[in-house]
């Protein structure tokens, strides 16, 4: 348990270092005088004067060597001092805090929806592998997997928002706004996880321990509840860890498509407008969400499977 947390803490450090380094390189490669750019971010494009730039230069020690600047940059990062957005001028930390809540909400609803979709479908098709239901599901899942998440989102918009006008096209505000983006993400997740659940179900119900539980005298439903569920969830939960990468990537795409004001949208927007402090803040948050969800899954695996604990 301790080693899980320690590992994930290490990962968080790596994330911070990686994001910090990349954004630092980014900052350095930006054309023009950095002091002018920062001053423009602070006081607005029209109010930048040589004096203002000079003040910024002195205040931020911009004349130091690149290595020292790099260390300063990382030190600011450690203190969560991300600076202000070059575009809006607001402190990055405030913007990111707002976005974080929205992204986590979206991720939560999406994971929940995907579980509601994938679990029953996966278990049902795993019970009768090779049957009609199983084959239909295989085709649907293959077709879904061949779509980038933004195409699925687009199709949902065209169908539910434009054609039938059941849900709003994009934006944020009412609970109805979350349905389509969450569904787009959930479909992508479920298309893969339903297959994993199916394989796992198939393996478990054909295993000799499953048969033996029946032979001991347990009924079919008792056997499934006592020996099926837990054993089939072990690989499924472990697989969720792999799927997280897809979830995070999906969040960036879906938020951009639906103008959902989360971290992913913020990140894409910041990159487009070359707003380095915002890029750093949002990428860091994205990475940390990734680490946190990974930790949750590690702990779930640890709780579910005593075999892993013995090593």
């Amino acid at each position: 348990m301790k080693s899980i947390l320690l590992n994930r803490l290490m990962q968080a450090v790596m994330v911070a270092w990686g994001v910090g380094t990349l954004t630092f390189i980014f900052m350095r490669t930006l054309p023009g005088d950095m002091a002018y750019r920062i001053a423009a971010g602070r006081y607005g494009q029209d109010n930048v004067t040589a004096e203002a730039a000079e003040l910024v230069r002195q205040e931020l020690n911009l004349d130091v060597s690149p290595w020292l600047a790099y260390l300063n940059w990382l030190w600011d990062l450690v203190q969560l001092n991300f600076g202000t957005s070059l575009i809006s001028g607001a402190p990055v930390i405030h913007e990111v805090q707002h976005q974080l809540g929205h992204s986590l909400g979206l991720a939560f609803v999406a994971i929940l929806l995907s579980a509601i979709i994938a679990f029953p479908l996966g278990v049902l098709s795993g019970m009768r592998v090779g049957g009609l239901f199983d084959r239909c599901l295989l085709i649907i899942s293959a077709l879904l997997r061949a779509q980038p998440v933004f195409v699925i989102g687009l199709l949902l918009i065209l169908l539910f928002a434009v054609n039938w006008r059941i849900f709003p096209v994009a934006g944020f505000g009412t609970p109805a706004h979350i349905v389509l983006p969450a569904l787009a993400l959930a479909l992508v997740l479920a298309s893969v996880s339903s297959r994993v659940i199916r394989d796992s179900t198939h393996r478990v119900i054909h295993s000799s321990f499953y048969t033996f539980a029946r032979v001991k005298g347990l009924s079919a439903s008792q056997t499934f509840a006592r020996h099926g569920l837990r054993n089939l969830s072990v690989p499924v939960v472990a697989f969720m860890g792999i799927q997280l990468v897809g979830l995070i990537e999906g969040i960036v795409m879906v938020e951009s498509l639906f103008s959902w004001p989360g971290i992913g949208h913020g990140l894409a927007h910041a990159i487009f407008s070359r707003d380095v402090p915002m890029i750093q803040g949002t990428a860091l948050m994205m990475g940390l969400i990734f680490v946190c969800l990974n930790t949750v899954i590690d702990i779930a695996c640890y709780q579910l499977d005593p075999r892993g604990r013995l090593q």
């Binding site: 295993s207 000799s208 321990f209 048969t211 033996f212 539980a213 032979v215 006592r226 020996h227 837990r230 054993n231 072990v234 579910l304 499977d305 005593p306 075999r307």
Partner: peptide, 14 residues
């Protein structure tokens, strides 16, 4: 019925 391979017949996580 006694199983052939008890290691496999017992629930691995129970």
């Amino acid at each position: 019925m006694l199983p052939q391979e008890p290691w496999h017949a017992l629930d691995p996580v129970m």
